[in-house]
Structures are given as C-alpha cells and as structure tokens.
C-alpha cells in the first residue's frame, strides 16, 4: 500500500510536469472513439526474451526458459484528471503466449477520444469469470485452446506459467515449473493471487481519437519472477504450483510490467 501511494504521488507529480511541458498537439481529431493497441514485449532483464537462451537471474542461477504465458484482463484507461474508461470486461481477457507472436498485442476498440496517461489491468482472470459456466468461457478463456492455462481439478485459470531448465534444479531433467493461479475461491476463501497493475506513461500520452491508432509498448520482464520481494531460488523450489509458496511468486511478478513508450500517429 505504501508503495502504491508513492507510485501514485510520483505519477501525479509526473503528469503535472508533463501537462505543463508537453507540446500542444492538434486536438481537433480527438472526437468520437478509437482503438488503443497494447503490445507486450517480453524481456529478460535488459534484452528481449528468447527461449533456449541461458540467462543469469538475480540470484546468480542460470535459467533457460521454454514457456512463458500470462493472462491480462480487466483493463482500465485513465486520463490525467482521473476520469477513467473501463473497458467492457468481456472484450479484454487476453492471454499472452511468448511462443505465439500474434498474442503479444491486443487492441481495445471504441475507446472514447482523449488523452490517457495510465493503463490499469489485472494479471490473471477475475473470480467472477473464474467461476462462470461454459457459455462464458470463450476466446482466450476457452479451456480447450488456452494452452493448458487451466487447472481442471479446481476449475481455475493459471495466471502465469513459466517453464524451463536450470543446472540449479534438482528435479529430473533439471526442469523448473512455475504455474501460478488461484483467484480466492468460490464459496470458501482460498489463496488469492490476482494482482492489479497500474502503468503510467513517461514522456508521451496515449492519444485516442477516431483518426488515431496509438500503440502502447509494455515491457514484461520475465526475470522479475525470480526477483524481489521474494528471491526465488530454483535450487530450493524448482516446482511451484497451487501451493502457499505461489503467493511469493505472484508478489514477484506483480511488478514485471513497465510502460516503456507510446507510439501515437
């Protein structure tokens, strides 16, 4: 919470600076509605993420990834003055699969024109959707085609899945598997690993209008899964799934996203 406050304060300060300094764009075309595309660039530390490449994580362990998927949903776009556009939920349950390039971006249509400075979303699938019947599970939520991002024994989606190998792993084949889900339970409360993310623009705004097609570039740093606040050692925990330890991993990846830049055209 403290952190949130800081971030919030920083964001406000930041937007204040922005609004005074930023160039005056021609606002004529800012009417009606338009699309916003969000592109997720998966990274490992400072460079792009490549499967099969050995990286060293913050704990000095060598890791090679061969699977990296995550759900993002419940998008909200915010303007400087705090007004928000809540994207209709069903338009935006999105699964990013690193091995399928087409999944790296999503487009939100019919966004009311204006200048937006923040993007909010959650990592995972909210509890309402997670407890819905079959008619609600279409598109990226279709359990037949979502690349096993679903636990059939508790009908819950897996929010983040990372698999790979590491010489530090003591599992057969030196594998590591992190499958993180759990939305808080249906009738009985369980672990809730849903994480909310707010990203702010740095030197540009997201300018939406009927003649516009802004692209928001978000960096997703897979390395964060191993990082803070709970250093994750492959040597100690090569497999984490629906267990209490999942909470630590979710806390790590909660801040793996960064809004790098916006292309307005």
């Amino acid at each position: 919470m403290k952190n949130m406050k800081k971030i919030f304060a920083a964001a406000i300060l930041f937007t204040a600076i922005l609004s005074t300094s930023s160039c005056k764009k021609d606002k004529d075309d800012l009417t009606g509605t338009g699309p916003v595309t969000i592109e997720f660039d998966n990274r490992f530390g400072d460079g792009p993420l490549n499967f099969g490449t050995a990286y060293t994580n913050q704990n000095g362990e060598e890791v090679t990834l061969n699977l990296f998927n995550y759900y993002v949903s419940n998008f909200v776009l915010l303007k400087e003055d705090g007004t928000e556009y809540i994207v209709p939920k069903d338009e935006c349950y999105h699964l990013v699969r690193h091995d399928v390039t087409a999944t790296h971006s999503l487009t939100i249509n019919n966004v009311p024109a204006g200048e937006y400075t923040k993007v909010k979303f959650i990592i995972g699938v909210d509890s309402l959707k997670s407890t819905s019947d079959a008619s609600q599970r279409t598109g990226d939520l279709d359990v037949a085609t979502n690349g096993d991002m679903y636990w059939m024994w508790n009908s819950g989606y897996i929010f983040m899945k990372m698999e790979g190998t590491s010489p530090s792993s003591t599992e057969i084949g030196n594998i590591f598997n992190y499958h993180i889900g759990l939305y808080g339970g249906y009738a009985t409360p369980t672990i809730n690993n849903l994480k909310s993310v707010t990203l702010s623009v740095t030197d540009d705004k997201i300018i939406v209008g009927k003649e516009r097609a802004p692209e928001v570039h978000v960096y997703t740093d897979a390395k964060e899964v191993f990082g803070s606040p709970n250093p994750l050692f492959v040597s100690a925990s090569a497999v984490i799934m629906g267990s209490p330890a999942s909470v630590n991993v979710a806390a790590n990846y909660a801040d793996m996203f960064k809004l790098d830049h916006v292309h307005n055209d």
Binding site: T131, D133, A134, W153, N154, Y186, A187
Partner: peptide, 23 residues
C-alpha cells in the same frame, strides 16, 4: 450440487467434463 468431485474443486457442472477426458 454446489460443488463437484470429492474435494469440491469444481463448482460448475459444465467444467467437470474436461477433467476426466484429460486425466
């Protein structure tokens, strides 16, 4: 039924079926 399976892991009948198919 409010839940399915002995441990109640599934809470909607629609979502029972994929489980035995994939098990």
């Amino acid at each position: 039924s409010e839940t399915f399976f002995w441990d109640g892991g599934v809470h909607n009948l629609d979502l029972v079926t994929p489980n035995p198919i994939e098990n």
